[in-house]
Design a protein around this nucleic acid. Structure first.
Length: 234
DNA sequence: CTCCCGATAT
DNA sequence: ATATCAGGAG
């Protein structure tokens, strides 16, 4: 046991001092942070985000590079065969569900929304395979409409480590973040947290020693870092 | 809660 | 072998 182990003496977790200091340093570290999915229109972003469930953006971008050439419009996805689309997206995982959702979503975009991606949370949530995370990504990055906070696995994990929440439910975490973080920072901070989560604040082995916001992070001083709460039992 | 599910790092 | 990856539905 390290008797000299320092304890967290930084600003109160969730306080404006801590939140703003974290945002400022993350902006310095990742000035180019943004959505890292490749897309050229709202339909492509919607489909890319549906594919990104439990899959890296890097993998999604490899798949969509071919996919969006083979299926150039929403009509092509709506008319695609289930089996063929499954194989086209296979490497992203969950490919049966994703193919079904992409086809049904595309058909609904055409039958209900004139072939366009709707611009409200309420309408987006009616699309199969679209929940708040995907809806917030599309609204923010395709339309510049921010009505919520993108909470993915990175955002949830870093929020717990910063002491912003003790929840694991993304919807509850989103509600807490919207109270703690100024609205003008919601979309930017989600990107910053994702970049930092990938580069430094890894799920398994966070590199606190080389983290320049460790002095703002209670978890960096914990005996064992805050981990994801695995629901899997083996 | 369970299921969907391939790719990758450790 | 196991955990995790820009989740969502039943």
């Amino acid at each position: 046991m390290n008797l000299a182990a320092p304890i967290y003496t930084g600003p109160t977790p969730g306080s404006p001092e801590q939140v703003n200091a974290i945002i400022a340093e993350l902006r310095r570290l990742y000035p180019q942070a943004k959505c890292s999915l490749d897309f050229s229109n709202p339909v492509e972003l919607l489909i890319a985000t549906q594919l990104s469930a439990q899959c890296t953006d890097e993998r999604v971008n490899i798949v969509t590079a071919k996919l969006f050439k083979k299926y150039p419009s929403v009509n092509d996805f709506a008319e695609a065969s289930q089996e063929e689309l499954e194989q086209d997206i296979r490497s992203t995982g969950f490919y049966r569900n994703k193919a079904k959702n992409i086809r049904a979503t595309s058909q609904r975009l055409i039958s209900v929304y004139g072939g366009k991606v709707p611009r409200t949370m309420e309408d987006l949530l009616t699309l199969p395979g679209v929940a708040r995370k995907t809806a917030n990504v599309v609204l923010g990055n395709a339309f510049g409409i921010v009505v919520g906070f993108v909470v993915d696995t990175h955002v949830g994990r870093l929020s717990r480590r910063f002491g912003w929440t003790t929840n694991t439910d993304p919807v509850k975490i989103e509600q807490e973040l919207m109270l703690i973080v100024p609205k003008q920072d919601w979309l930017d901070l989600s990107h910053l947290l994702i970049f930092h989560g990938r580069a430094i604040c890894d799920a398994r082995k966070p590199l606190c020693e080389q983290c320049t916001i460790a002095h703002l992070c209670p978890s960096a001083f914990a005996a064992t870092p805050v981990r994801n709460t695995s629901t899997k039992i083996h």
